[in-house]
């Protein structure tokens, strides 16, 4: 016996189920090849019910300081990306159809080559006798070659180059949603263009800024290839230590513990960034 109400509910439920059915293949794939292995790895870290690996990670100064360095590098990369990306995103959002298409094409072009290839290209560009140093010397701007490789500068340059699009795109998307009439209204009401920007356009683009920052920060924190190659062993990030544990010491449980720490820190930072920008928006209101 089913009342009319029940059959209506059933019809609604059936529609939801149909939607779920379409999402099932992707969800299964994610579960089998991503969630399950990650859980397995993380469970290694507390093997036998002991927290000894976490203790080791916390007490050994090396790991704490490398984690600190990783956070600093990620913060620096995020900051540099933000400063470089905002003007690009702003220009793209106002460039008109052809300009925006060309700009986005240029921005996404690097994605057609692998990070590995691009990082090797930086080795060629930034070396002592690389293109950059030679050019600067030929123009008489410097006497001795600048140390651009196997140090922090090299790592930052390489990472910023790889991660810049991840900052530009969310900010661009946010700026596209800001009605150009708003800044026009602000100017009409007496604001010089820069004040119209600071008071109206910028606060309204903060969702994009926060998304871009979170994305770049999180990606930088776990970055491996670029710092490994351009840092030349002198700049160590947490991901490199994890790799070392696995490859050289075959200490999977300890690598799992470090990974768990990295995951937790990442989630914490992610939450924090969301909170700060939400607070900022309210304040602007």
């Amino acid at each position: 016996m089913s009342s009319p109400g029940a059959s209506r509910r059933l019809a609604g439920r059936r529609r939801e189920l149909a939607l779920l059915a379409f999402a099932t293949p992707a969800l299964l794939l994610l579960g089998v090849v991503f969630a399950w292995p990650v859980l397995r790895l993380l469970s290694l870290s507390v093997e036998g019910g002991s927290l000894e690996h976490f203790e080791k990670a916390a007490l050994d100064g090396l790991y704490v300081s490398v984690l600190g360095d990783s956070l600093k590098i990620a913060a620096a990369v995020t900051a540099i990306c933000l400063v470089l990306a905002y003007p690009v995103a702003f220009w793209l959002s106002r460039a008109g159809r052809i300009g925006a298409a060309l700009g986005l094409f240029a921005l996404l072009l690097p994605f057609w080559t692998s990070v590995l290839v691009r990082t090797y290209a930086w080795l060629v560009l930034l070396g002592r006798n690389g293109v950059v140093n030679r050019a600067l010397r030929d123009w008489g701007l410097i006497e001795a070659p600048l140390p651009l490789l196997h140090n922090m500068a090299g790592v930052l340059i390489g990472m910023v180059q790889v991660l810049l699009p991840y900052m530009v795109l969310p900010i661009y998307a946010a700026l596209l949603r800001v009605d150009p009439d708003l800044s026009r209204a602000a100017e009409g009401l007496g604001a010089p263009p820069w004040r119209a920007f600071l008071r109206v356009t910028f606060p309204l683009s903060l969702t994009g800024v926060s998304a871009g920052c979170a994305l770049v920060f999180v990606l930088s924190l776990g970055f491996f290839i670029t710092p490994a190659l351009l840092g030349g062993g002198r700049v160590v990030m947490i991901s490199m230590l994890i790799e070392q544990q696995v490859r050289e010491f075959l200490d999977w449980p300890f690598a799992a513990a470090l990974s768990a720490v990295l995951l937790l820190v990442t989630l914490a930072i992610y939450g924090l960034i969301g909170r700060i920008t939400r607070g900022g928006r309210l304040e602007a209101a």
Partner: peptide, 8 residues
Amino acid sequence: NYALFPHM
């Protein structure tokens, strides 16, 4: 469309 500042 009024162009009111939505965050104020």
